[in-house]
Write a protein that binds this DNA or RNA. Structure first.
Lengths: 148, 148
DNA sequence: TTTTATGCAAACATTTTGCAGTCAC
DNA sequence: GTGACTGCAAAATGTTTGCATAAAA
């Protein structure tokens, strides 16, 4: 659904250079996990990633590697994690402009949205509290159009 | 820290009547879990609740009962749950006005805040998307004053 | 007396960790 | 060759469930 401003190849190349510069090592697992995140739908669980990478690219990745890699990607700030309330972490690429989520409590559909007023107000609130804002998550729960 | 507009005794009395009317049964476990939520700090884990109820009131409550009770309270809309990103659910009484959280990623301190502009903008965004808003969660991550 | 709630222990699901072997640089 | 990465299996963690008993209405 969502397209990014940067092509996958460019993104991957940049990322691999970045990894090298920091003294970490690249691997085909990292490459294909990233490729999968780039081209698949958002909001994948670790299990999803294992399944999809195998199905789409025929690459075997262990679930432990996925968890470790996602933690690594989060620290690199190229991935965000998301909890839709079912006790399972989901991951999405952090390449697009910041957006938030509306989650339907009936069908679990996820609607993404971005609102500039909310964004700027958050920055203001953080400043008022002498808080050094790094990231934020906003989730609206309710019923989507179909489920009302 | 936070005081509610309603006394615990009044709140408990109302709640017990409500439970009866719906055909459920009251119990001292429910009473003391509620009492603990009312008087303790916010953002307790299930484990915290077991520990505190024992310590403060010398009442034994099983962890399974806490989970079941919190689910029940959430369905009654008197409790909210909160995920601060460490994989453990935390609970707080839903008696006060809506507020959101800023969480320090270094010391895990939680700062509560309420912002009317953000609140009203959320309602607007939901409306624009034909989404029937029931609840929402907003969390800002970053560094608190002390940890910067 | 009927039905719901509780507590225990077992089950379950998700995530993390230790370790031996592999791969990148 | 060294150090980081991977995969497996085991462990750890958090949460849920089945069942017998207890308590509420």
């Amino acid at each position: 659904m969502k397209k990014y401003d940067i092509s996958f190849d460019t993104f991957l190349k940049n990322f691999k250079e970045h990894v090298s510069k920091l003294g970490f090592k690249n691997s085909i697992q990292k490459d294909y996990i990233l490729k999968n995140l780039y081209y698949s739908e958002d909001h994948l669980t670790a299990e999803d990633i294992v399944t999809y990478v195998k199905r789409e690219y025929n690459i075997d990745v262990g679930i432990a590697t996925v968890y470790r890699t996602m933690k690594f990607f989060e620290e690199m700030s190229i991935v965000n994690s998301l909890d839709i309330g079912d006790g399972t972490k989901r991951y999405e690429l952090n390449l697009s402009l910041h957006h938030d989520h509306m989650i339907c409590t009936a069908c679990h559909k996820i609607i993404e949205f971005a609102d500039e007023i909310i964004e700027s107000q958050q920055i203001l609130v953080a400043k008022e509290n002498n808080f050094d804002l790094k990231n934020h998550v906003m989730t609206i729960y309710g019923l989507c159009e179909n489920c009302q």
